[in-house]
Amino acid sequence: MYSAEKILILDLLKILHKHTDEDHRLAQKEIREILKTEYNTTVSRKTVKNNIEKLIRYSERADANEILYRTKTRKIKTKDSNKEDELEVLSDFGYVHDFTYGELRLIIDSILFSKQIPSRQRKELIEKLENLSSKHFNSRINHIRTASSNGPVNHELFNNIEILDEAITHSKKVSFRYNKYTVDEKSNLVLQSQTNRDGEAREYTINPYQMVATNGRYYLICNNDRYDTISHYRVDRITNLKILSETRKPMREVKGLEHGLDLSKHMEEHIYMFTGESTSVRLRFHKNFLNEFIDWFGTENISFSDHAEEEVTARVTVNEIAMRKWALQYALHVRVLSPASLVDEIKADIDQARENYQ
């Protein structure tokens, strides 16, 4: 059974964690007031002092959070004479949290920008992250509100991430159903399993290699066991996920992964996560568009030529289907020069788009 003293030291640690940080400190008097109002505990100044000193000694360990304090000098009269002695007093205590405000905001923003996490789960996650810091951080983000998720939500997302992580760690195959959006007879948007020729829900057997987060979504980089090429699946569209007993197919047996997965290169080439081979593409655009271009393709996988005063030609290795979609998105700013087959496909797409508005 825990003694009152052991419970007190834990309460003191909670108070420092909740109420203080490097910029917001508490004096012993304030700590005693919090103990009384929030914990219904009344203790002497000396008891608080002794327990905080224990916490400070513990915080000197490499694996412990640092507890900050300031040293003040107080003059006191001795019992045996009228002389005054100087006594060092510890005050202004603060707790050094694992994450800075900036780091927590970065993590929280990534949750807010995620398109696949339901609003309720976003709120729960943010509240847990807030509790990693002091109350002063909480008060600084009260103005944040998240937009409601659009369309139907797959509540298996977090469970899917855990299962896939376990399967990847232990090199196991998985099976699942993959879903697509459709509109039902009441004109409601719903998620529906892909079906086979008999109209039954299709079961996918997959060799998982890596999960990535891009464009606000989680994707699984993998191989469909029926083929020898790379596949990508949206994790939020996966249901009925199970780990199989079979060992997954080695990467060396998958086209494009013979030498392993270069994730940075793979992501630069697959900007929309389409499946298929990459090809070298030449395109020309105004220099004012260069920042946008770099945001999409990075700086490692590109080269430039035909430098003019206002325009420049770039060469990038990219998934051809993705480049076809990307070129249409930025058709007002970019002109694809090669390969010729891709140029012809984009021209046909533009003609088709024009017909849609006639």
Rank of each mutant, 00 (worst) to 15 (best):
M1K: 13
I7N: 02
L8Y: 03
T20N: 01
E22M: 07
Q28K: 14
E38V: 05
Y39T: 05
T41W: 06
R45L: 06
N51G: 09
N51F: 13
I52S: 09
I52Y: 07
E53V: 02
N65P: 09
N65C: 04
R70P: 02
K79T: 15
D80H: 12
K83C: 05
L87G: 03
V89Y: 02
L90T: 05
L104M: 08
I108R: 03
L112Q: 03
Q116W: 07
Q121H: 14
K135E: 13
I141D: 15
H143N: 15
A147S: 13
N160A: 04
K172W: 03
K173A: 10
V183H: 07
D184H: 02
S193F: 02
Q194K: 06
N207D: 10
T214N: 14
Y219H: 01
Y227R: 13
D228G: 05
R234T: 03
D236M: 06
R237V: 00
V254K: 02
K255Y: 12
K255L: 15
L257S: 02
H259D: 12
G260E: 01
D262H: 02
S264P: 00
E268V: 03
S278D: 00
T279Y: 03
R282P: 06
L283T: 01
R284V: 10
N288H: 00
E292W: 09
F293Y: 05
F293G: 04
I294S: 05
D295G: 08
G298T: 08
S303C: 03
T313C: 06
T313L: 08
T313M: 10
A314S: 12
V318A: 04
E320H: 07
E320R: 10
L328E: 00
Y330E: 07
A331F: 11
H333T: 11
V336K: 10
L337D: 01
S338M: 06
S341Y: 09
S341L: 10
V343D: 01
D344S: 11
E345A: 05
E345M: 09
A348Q: 14
A348H: 15
D351Q: 14
A353P: 05
Y357P: 00
